[in-house]
Write a protein that binds this DNA or RNA. Structure first.
Length: 219
DNA sequence: ACCCAGGGTCATA
DNA sequence: TATGACCATGGG
């Protein structure tokens, strides 16, 4: 029987401390980062965000008024730059149509989530990252790291779908924005240090419960 | 030269 | 529903 979700949280928090996520100067920047980081390492996203800021483009109205070809050159480092330029425009259009971020913030989770998922280029993880980290809504973000770590610990979720994983976490945890925020941030920190595709298990705070640590294998 | 990175969409069967 | 192709850069 693998360690419980709450025990794993405690171990991660004790090992890494509060993460102060999401790293950004504004809610809009969180949303932009959520799109730019799709299947891309955060390092590359930071460079793209710096470019957008340097060109005074880090607000919805300015970004929407900026030609996609221009955005492409600024976000090039984040990869998929043609797609992502369109997706950023779609995000801006949504924000402005809804009356701005302050208006969005007053909406409920149940109203916002379907609306975000209807925006071109926003799928489950991007939507939930925006809801949790930009709009302070209580929803647990599932990403590739989350599945990889918990699979290695022996938690097989069926069906192996985004929604099932999310329900599994939320059913075991109090409905708390701060907790969801911290837990996902800790998972990412842990994954970057210890649970990449090639396991680096030296000093791993979860090694006691991790079969792949004992076997030095890759799952 | 390869594999990977904080996904999502679209076409096809 | 379920798989596969595709998107594209930069680091290890």
């Amino acid at each position: 029987m693998p360690a419980h979700i709450r025990q794993i949280y405690t171990r991660l928090f004790d090992a890494y401390g509060p993460r102060h996520w999401w790293p950004a100067d504004s809610s809009f920047e969180v949303m932009v980062g959520a799109i730019l980081t799709q299947n891309t390492s955060w390092r590359q996203v930071e460079a793209a965000i710096a470019q957008l800021k340097q060109h005074h483009c880090m607000d919805a109205a300015t970004m929407l008024a900026t030609p996609a070809e221009m955005l492409q050159t600024w976000i090039r480092s984040a990869g998929f730059f043609r797609q992502k330029a369109k997706r950023l425009h779609a995000l801006c259009r949504f924000i402005l149509q809804q009356g701005g971020i302050q208006t969005l913030r007053r909406q409920t989770l149940a109203v916002l989530r379907p609306q975000l998922l209807a925006v071109h280029g926003i799928g489950p993880e991007t939507a939930d990252s925006i809801l949790l980290y930009a709009l302070d809504k209580p929803i647990f973000v599932i990403d590739a790291y989350t599945r990889r770590i918990f699979r290695r610990l022996g938690h097989a979720i069926h069906p192996d779908r985004y929604h099932a994983w999310q329900q599994w976490f939320q059913a075991a945890l109090p409905n708390d924005v701060a907790l969801f925020n911290e837990y996902h941030a800790l998972i990412v920190e842990h994954a970057k240090r210890h649970c990449r595709m090639t396991a680096q298990c030296n000093g791993c705070p979860l090694a006691d419960d991790c079969p792949s640590a004992a076997l030095s294998s890759v799952i």
